[in-house]
C-alpha cells in the first residue's frame, strides 16, 4: 500500500516537474537520448533523482539536479552577496535564495491536499445510489417474503422438523436441544 502510494505520488511529482519545464527533443551532449528536458540557463548542481538534468520534487530525494529558477539578474546579485558573510543576508533574501533553488519546502510537499474529502463524499454518494436502488427493487420488483418466513406457525413447524431430524447435532441447531428432557438446553 505504502509503495503504491509512493509510486502514485512520484508520478504526480513527475507531472508537476513537467509543468515547470517543457519537454523538447534534445541535441545536447546526450543528443541520442530520446527525451531531454530543456532546462534553459538553470545551473546543474547535482545528481538529482535519476541523473537526468531535471527538477523533480520528492521528500525522499530532496536534492534536485538543477536549480528551480534560472539565474536572473536579481538572483545573480544575491549569489554575489551569498559569497560574503551570511549574517548580512536578510530573511527575505534568504527565502529568495531558497526559492531560487527549490520550488517547495518539504512541509509544503507534505501538506495535506484535502483530497480525501471529495473521495469520501463521492464514495458515500455512490454507495447511497446502491441503497436507493435496493429500496426501489424492494418496492417495485421483489415479491413479498414467502409465507414460510412470515407466518410464525410455519416457522415453528420448520424448527420442530429440524429438531426431530437431528439437524447439525454437533455445533448447530440440534446440539442446543436436550432430547432427554425434551427442551432447549439452558
Amino acid at each position: 500500500m505504502a509503495s503504491k502510494m509512493a509510486l502514485s505520488r512520484s508520478f504526480r511529482l513527475w507531472g508537476r516537474a513537467l509543468v515547470v519545464q517543457r519537454r523538447s527533443m534534445g541535441t545536447g551532449p546526450l543528443g541520442y537520448f530520446p527525451s531531454r528536458l530543456d532546462i534553459g540557463k538553470r545551473e546543474v548542481v547535482g545528481f538529482g533523482l535519476t541523473g537526468e538534468e531535471c527538477y523533480v520534487e520528492d521528500v525522499h530525494s530532496p536534492f534536485p539536479a538543477i536549480r528551480f529558477k534560472e539565474d536572473t539578474a536579481e538572483i545573480a546579485m544575491l549569489r554575489e552577496k551569498e559569497k560574503g558573510d551570511w549574517k548580512k543576508l536578510t530573511v527575505p533574501e534568504r527565502k529568495e535564495l531558497y526559492r531560487a533553488s527549490f520550488a517547495q519546502t518539504l512541509t509544503e510537499m507534505e501538506a495535506p491536499t484535502g483530497e480525501w474529502k471529495p473521495i469520501l463524499g463521492v464514495t458515500l454518494f455512490l454507495s447511497s445510489l446502491g441503497i436507493w436502488f435496493y429500496l426501489w427493487m424492494r418496492k417495485f420488483v421483489y415479491d413479498d417474503l414467502p409465507e414460510t418466513m412470515t407466518n410464525e406457525e410455519l416457522v415453528k413447524d420448520q424448527i420442530r422438523f429440524m429438531i426431530e431430524g437431528r439437524t447439525n447435532p454437533v455445533q448447530g441447531l440440534a446440539s442446543n436441544y436436550d432430547y432427554e428432557k425434551g427442551q432447549w438446553k439452558k
Binding site: R12, G15, R16, L18, V19, D85, W86, K87, K88, L89, V91, R94, K95, Y98, A103, Q104, T105, L106, T107, E108, A111, T113
Partner: peptide
Amino acid sequence: ELGISTPEELGYDKPELALPNPY
C-alpha cells in the same frame, strides 16, 4: 557562527505557498 537560519526562523515549518495541482 555562519549566520544560518533554521527552517522555523524562515517560516518553513508550516506551508507558506501552494502550487496548483497539475491535474
